[in-house]
């Protein structure tokens, strides 16, 4: 292995992330190359120095803030929900349909009573009993120039 090929292997070697075959190859090179050996030692020192940085804890309110931001998200509706009417509109539409159906199922020609027919209806018994008419005296013959019914 050449020094230039060590570039891609050196950090993996320091961190122990190389495959066994790669590790052996690197160690074989290091045994004969003081410059790469020095580089490995320096990289190892850098890696250990990076370990010295302390870990910080999130602030106590961190979780609360996340949950508050999640709670503030708008409620997501499915795509077909956009076609669903609001409850008030649905109720109004249902009432309209019911009214239409009711009107549509009513008889088409309901019996109509004209105002002028009311007296006739009141005398319906008399009019329907035609025998009364037969009991009337026979009409007087018109021999006096038009006086047909002296009672009228």
């Amino acid at each position: 292995m050449s020094c230039s090929r060590m570039e891609n292997k050196i950090l993996g070697y320091v961190d122990g992330r190389l495959k066994e075959s790669e590790r052996l190859e690197v160690e074989k090179h290091l045994a004969t190359c003081p410059a790469c050996r020095l580089r490995v030692n320096e990289f190892r020192a850098v890696s250990e120095l990076l370990d010295e940085l302390p870990v910080i804890d999130p602030s106590p309110a961190f979780d609360l803030r996340v949950h508050a931001r999640v709670a503030a998200l708008p409620v997501k509706q499915s795509w077909w929900a956009a076609f669903l009417p609001a409850p008030r509109v649905a109720i109004a539409a249902a009432m309209l349909v019911m009214a239409t159906v009711w009107v549509g199922t009513r008889p088409n020609n309901p019996p109509q009573i004209a105002v002028d027919d009311i007296p006739v209806v009141e005398n319906l018994d008399v009019l329907s009993n035609f025998d009364v008419l037969t009991e009337l005296p026979p009409p007087v013959q018109a021999d006096d120039g038009g006086q047909t019914n002296p009672q009228m």
Partner: peptide, 20 residues
């Protein structure tokens, strides 16, 4: 990525030379 990391460690090695 390996090349990126190598360059980063090279820079750190120089910057932290007294500590190294």
């Amino acid at each position: 990525l390996k090349s990126l990391l190598f360059r980063a460690y090279e820079t750190l090695r120089v910057e932290l030379a007294p500590l190294v």
